[in-house]
Simulated scan of single mutants.
Amino acid sequence: MTRSVSLLGSTGSIGTQALEVIARHRDSFEVVALAAGGSHPELVIEQARAFGPRLVALASDAAFAEVRDALPGVEVLAGPDAVVAAAGIGADVVLNGVTGSVGLRPTLAALAAGSTLALANKESLVAGGPLVNRSRVRDDQIVPVDSEHSALAQALRSGTKGEVRRLVVTASGGAFRGRTRRELESVTYADALKHPTWDMGPVVTVNSASLVNKALEVIEAHLLFDIPAERIDVVVHPQSVIHSMVEFVDGSTIAQASPPDMRLPIALGLSWPSRLDGVATPPDWTQAHTWTFEPLDEHVFPAIRVARQALAASELHPAVFNAANEECVAAFAVRDLSFLGITDTVRRVVEAYEGADASSVEAVEAAETWARARARELISNVG
C-alpha cells in the first residue's frame, strides 16, 4: 500500500535524505506536501517538480512569489502558519525534520490530524513533551527518527516494558572527545563543526560537540518510552555503529548496529513497523571490527547532568534548557560566547527558572521567551 507523506524541512539534511529514500521506493510513498524555511527556493522548486506534491509551504514569505510562479497548479503557502498547514494536511506520515522548537506547532498539528509522526525534530518533544504526549490519539502515533531513539524502539520490541532495566544511549563523543576543560577553553565554532562520523546541520553538530545533543536525547527517550531519567544512561561509542541499547532485567542487552547513515532511521520512520529493502549497507561481518565504549566525562561535558536537573524540576524546564541552548549556540557561532560558556550559561538559566506546567503551546512559548531573554542577558554580561 502506498503511504502519503508530508515532509517538513525538505531542504535540510533530514529532508533531502528522506527524499533520497522515497525516490528509491516510489511505489511505497506519495509526497503530498513539502515544507521548508524558504532560504533555498531553487531547491524547493526542484523537489516539487520531482515529487509532485499538491502543497508547498514556506516558513518565510521572502521567496513566495518565486516559488508560486515556478509551480503552477501547486498550492503554495507562506508565513508562520504555512508549515503547520502542511503538517495538518492529513497525510499517512508526517516527517518532521524542522530544526528547533519551532517544530512544536507542526508536531501538534500532525498528531491532531491523526497522522503517524516520524519525529526527527527532537526539540518539539523536549520543549513540549507532556503537551505532545497528551495530544496523541493513539499510543503508537510517534515513530522516532533520531538514530538513537530508532535503535531503542527497535530493541524494545524484544521484551515488555516491565522487563526493561535501563536504556543505554550511545554518543560518538563529538568533535572534542577526550579533551579536558582546559583544552576546550579556546576551541572555535569551526572546530566544533568537525564531527568525526556524522554529516549533520551546524546546530546539531555543535550540540554534539557539547553533548547537549545527547542531553536532549535523554529527555526525549524519557518522554518517548516512559522510562525514568535515572534509568537512562549515556555511554561514549566513537565508531557510531551501535546506536543504542536496551538492558533487560535478566541481564541480556539488545543492541542495534548499522552504519552511521541517517537514511536507515528515516526509512524506518516512513515505513514503521515494516522495513524497506536496501536502505543502508550493513557491516561486513567477514572483516575484523573493533568497537569501543567509554564512560562519559560529566566534568568536562556536564550537559546531561543539567538535562536531568531540568527534567526533575518541572514540565517546562526542558523547554527552558533547549531555548537557552539555542541562544548560546548562536552566540558561540559569532564569538560572543566561548564553547564552555554554552553549557555553563544553560545551567544558570535552568537554575534561575521558577517552573510551571506545560498546559498549552502559549505556556511553552512563554517559557522559551523567558529563557532566551535570560540567556542573552547572561551572554551580554560575559562579553
Rank of each mutant, 00 (worst) to 15 (best):
G73A: 09
P228R: 01
E230P: 00
V300Q: 02
R179T: 10
V204G: 01
I379N: 00
P41G: 05
V203M: 14
D140C: 06
L55G: 02
G341T: 11
P259K: 08
L152K: 04
G114K: 07
V74Y: 08
V218E: 02
W291K: 10
V44D: 00
E326Y: 07
H243Q: 03
V235A: 07
V102I: 15
V204S: 13
A50R: 15
V143A: 07
V346I: 13
E183W: 11
P283Y: 13
P265E: 05
M262D: 02
V334H: 07
P318W: 11
A375L: 09
V5E: 02
A112F: 09
V279C: 10
E20R: 15
G129V: 00
V84I: 14
A331D: 05
R374A: 15
R179K: 15
E326R: 11
W370A: 02
A363Q: 04
P302K: 10
S359F: 10
H149V: 07
S252P: 00
W285S: 13
P295Y: 12
G73E: 04
T343L: 09
A367K: 04
A257T: 14
L111N: 01
L125E: 00
V76K: 03
T16N: 10
G114L: 09
V137A: 11
S147R: 12
T16F: 02
H243F: 12
F248M: 03
W272R: 07
N207S: 13
K122I: 10
L104V: 05
A333I: 11
Q239G: 01
A229S: 12
V350G: 03
S210R: 06
P228W: 01
L167G: 01
A155H: 08
V169R: 00
P260R: 05
A62D: 13
L167C: 06
S252E: 12
A267R: 10
A190N: 13
A313T: 08
S6A: 15
V349Q: 03
L131V: 03
S271Q: 14
G251N: 08
D357T: 15
I45P: 00
M1F: 13
P80A: 15
A371R: 05
A109W: 05
V32N: 02
G201Q: 08
M262W: 06
E66T: 14
E217Q: 04
E66N: 02
K194Q: 14
Q287H: 14
R347W: 05
D226C: 05
G162P: 03
V306L: 09
R335W: 05
L117E: 02
D284T: 06
L7T: 03
M1A: 15
E75G: 04
F301S: 03
A175F: 07
